[in-house]
Amino acid sequence: MNFLAIETSTETCSVALVHGDEVIERSEVAPRRHAELVLPMADELLAEAGLKRQALDGIAVGRGPGAFTGVRLGVSLAQGMAMALDIPVVTVSSLQALALEAPEDDAAILSVIDARMGEIYVAAWRRDADGGVSLLDRERVDTAAALVLPEAAAWHVVGSGWATYEAILRERIPAPILSAEGARYPQARHVAEVAARRFRAGEAVAPELALPVYLRDKVALTLVEQGKA
């Protein structure tokens, strides 16, 4: 199966191409440049594999949560390409893709994205026997100070939320932290990893049913909330 995976929900813009058993990718930390980079990245990967867009069997995309503009961009591009090519789409949680950046062992994984406005996008995961991850709780938006986690013997923490709220999160994580990486972002190769299983399971949807997940509707503080009025 040939399919493209797109992940633009955070500071990193990344695209991966699954071509049979091979996965090739392009990834760059490039805030505010995703719209400029994502299609050229896709075209470079197709050219490297010697494929035309018409050879694609599907599109996978990180559905969020993350930056509103980045999530919208990724999902809109996936929908547009899939509609033009008459192929299905698989959407993948960006928090799930981020969790796959953690080391592969028995420790629980906390994926945490800085949501700005004093909040985080967060979810806890466990490793599956096949190397994937499954939810231990639910994906949500919360403050770091209010975070409540399920019981686990140890944790890995990945994501920009750690870089912003490390001191608070250390107080909220009740078990030993085996590793913590604040400069980790969801990557298209992990979107592709999850999507490959879903394509095989027949879980792809029509492009118009591929929807973003924001977890919150509010994108900015009011002047009153900012203390400016």
Results as ranks from 00 to 15, higher is better:
Thr10Asp: 05
Glu203Arg: 15
Gln54Leu: 10
Ala167Tyr: 04
Val224Thr: 13
Leu100Pro: 07
Tyr165Thr: 06
Asp106Gly: 13
Gly202His: 05
Arg200Glu: 15
Arg197Asn: 09
Glu208Thr: 13
Ala196Ser: 06
Glu193Ala: 15
Ala204Gly: 09
Ala35Met: 02
Ala188Tyr: 02
Met41Phe: 11
Ala188Glu: 02
Glu203Ser: 07
Arg116His: 14
Ala183Arg: 12
His156Val: 03
Leu85Lys: 05
Met81Thr: 10
Pro88Thr: 01
Ala47Glu: 13
His190Gly: 07
Ala201Pro: 08
Gly202Lys: 03
Ser9Met: 05
Gly20Val: 02
Ala195Lys: 10
Val92Gln: 01
Leu100Cys: 07
Ser94Trp: 11
Gly58Val: 02
Arg198Val: 08
Asp114Gly: 12
Glu151Trp: 07
Val18Ile: 09
Ile6Tyr: 15
Ile87Ser: 03
Ala196Glu: 03
Ser27Trp: 07
Lys218Asn: 12
Gly66Cys: 06
Val122Thr: 08
Cys13Ser: 12
Asn2Ala: 11
Gly50Gln: 01
Ser9Cys: 10
Gly70Cys: 11
Leu147Phe: 00
Arg33Val: 00
Leu46Met: 08
Ala220Cys: 04
Thr143Arg: 12
Glu104Val: 15
Ala204Tyr: 09
Thr143His: 04
Leu98Pro: 12
Glu104Pro: 07
Arg184Trp: 14
Tyr121Ala: 06
Ala206Met: 12
Ala35Pro: 04
Pro212Ile: 03
Leu221Tyr: 04
Val122Phe: 02
Glu119Gly: 00
Val157Phe: 09
Glu193Val: 07
Ala60Pro: 15
Val89Phe: 00
Arg172Thr: 00
Gly161Val: 15
Ala144Tyr: 07
Ser76Lys: 03
Val141Glu: 06
Pro186Thr: 10
Glu7Asn: 02
Arg116Asp: 05
His34Trp: 02
Gly58Asp: 01
Arg198Phe: 15
Ala229Tyr: 15
Leu136Arg: 06
Leu100Ala: 09
Leu149Glu: 11
Ala183Ile: 14
Asn2Lys: 11
Gly58Ala: 04
Gly58Cys: 01
Val112Pro: 02
Ala196Cys: 02
Val89Ile: 00
Asn2Ile: 15
Ser134Phe: 07
Thr69Trp: 01
Thr222Pro: 00
Ser160Leu: 00
Arg126Pro: 11
Trp155Asp: 06
Ala82Leu: 14
Ser134Ala: 11
Pro88Phe: 01
Val75Ile: 03
Met117Trp: 14
Gly132His: 03
Ala183Asn: 14
Leu211Glu: 10
Ala84Asp: 06
Pro40Gln: 09
Leu223Arg: 11
Ala35Leu: 01
Arg53Tyr: 01
Ala47Met: 14
Leu136Glu: 06
